[in-house]
Design a protein around this nucleic acid. Structure first.
Lengths: 204, 204
DNA sequence: GGGTGTGAAGCCGTTCACAGCA
DNA sequence: TGCTGTGAACGGCTTCACACCC
């Protein structure tokens, strides 16, 4: 499989989610323009993405939803379970735990880390909270490969370095401070303040 | 001023934030490569963005930080204050309130809306929480132009329609359900689950 | 020499236009 | 006819390469 464009990967994740919902509604087949409407994109885009994962569509009734979901899973899911840690048990960290709760994904949150003694040792949304000093040890022991950073801005660089040193392969940084990682690791950064200012700008 | 690229607007927001921090540290001038390093991007990118806002750099010592911050503000800030509402006072909504708290922006959060009776009528992070049934009335009365959507997925479409009907000009949708808006309004969508799955994919 | 400003080239992602198939 | 699959054109953003200036 040649490399998939980033945007295609994002959309595949969304396709799968709406397809699963359609399955629950009893639908078995779907046309590219139907899937496109659900996500407010173009049918060509949908067909192009599906083409890229090598799933060749079907005969007369569009795509067979079950098959398509399976094809997407074969592409974007890891064969082995991927373990996730959330660093920072503040409001954002808790929000993310809530979102991932009971989702049909191959991702499992194994630990959350914080420094607040009221949280350390407790179980939050079903996830055990450890002190951040134990982070590297637990990440290695549990073989956690993905980390989501929701710590205060001034700590993100240090924490990110520790994460990479502990062997994490992917970091999602929700901190406003940019970090960087070894080239063998993947980094995605998202800054809410920037997004809000962007909306404000284009809303003028 | 011709239209600015979306990506440039995002970076301008980040430039300003790190520039303000540098000012606090006593720096008065900065080179494009220094600013670039702080954000892990290229110096050319920085110069190109600055060129696009018409701020022509300075003599020997790089850019005068004060001037640059002012130029950015003139471009991305509205002359008049822009008012923001957060719809949904869950963990994510509270996280956003916290981030915007005491930030030096022209944006002010005027209200938060929820259905939970434990929250309605209370003041959360300094912001008054109203019942969502009052949303349209208050948005019009307060002249709120920007809304941030953090409600449960099944309510986002209805809420978005109500927001647009009430005259909101920009929506930032953190809900996993795609919405759409009249062409005169600006919409930005961000789906955390998708981002996590994307990181997981590229971390393999 | 070491910085900025910028036309031109390159890259990535989307859309067009159309062939092919049931 | 109405859908899928796809080469080719297009557009936006980034990078290259270089002119210019202190």
């Amino acid at each position: 499989m040649k490399k998939l464009p980033e945007k295609t990967v994002e959309r595949l994740s969304q396709y799968r989610r709406v397809l699963l919902k359609e399955l629950e509604n009893g639908k078995t087949h779907i046309f590219s323009h139907e899937l496109a409407n659900l996500l407010h994109i173009t049918p060509v885009q949908v067909r192009r993405d599906i083409m890229l994962i090598g799933h060749t569509g079907t005969l007369r009734k569009g795509y067979e939803i079950n098959e398509l979901v399976k094809s997407i899973g074969e592409i974007i899911d890891c064969k082995t379970e991927q373990k996730v840690a959330i660093i920072g048990a503040g409001n954002l960290g808790k929000a993310i735990m809530g979102y991932l709760k009971g989702k049909r994904t191959k991702l499992t949150i194994k630990a959350v880390f914080d420094v607040n003694p009221d949280k350390v040792g407790r179980v939050i949304s079903g996830i055990r909270c450890y002190h951040i000093d134990e982070m590297q040890e637990i990440i290695q022991k549990e073989n956690i490969s993905i980390a989501i950073l929701t710590v205060p801005a001034d700590q993100s660089v240090q924490v990110a370095d520790d994460l990479i040193a502990a062997g994490v392969k992917g970091i999602l940084n929700y901190t406003p401070t940019p970090i960087n990682v070894q080239p063998h690791a993947y980094l995605e950064e998202y800054d809410m303040i920037t997004s809000i200012e962007k909306v404000a700008f284009f809303a003028k």
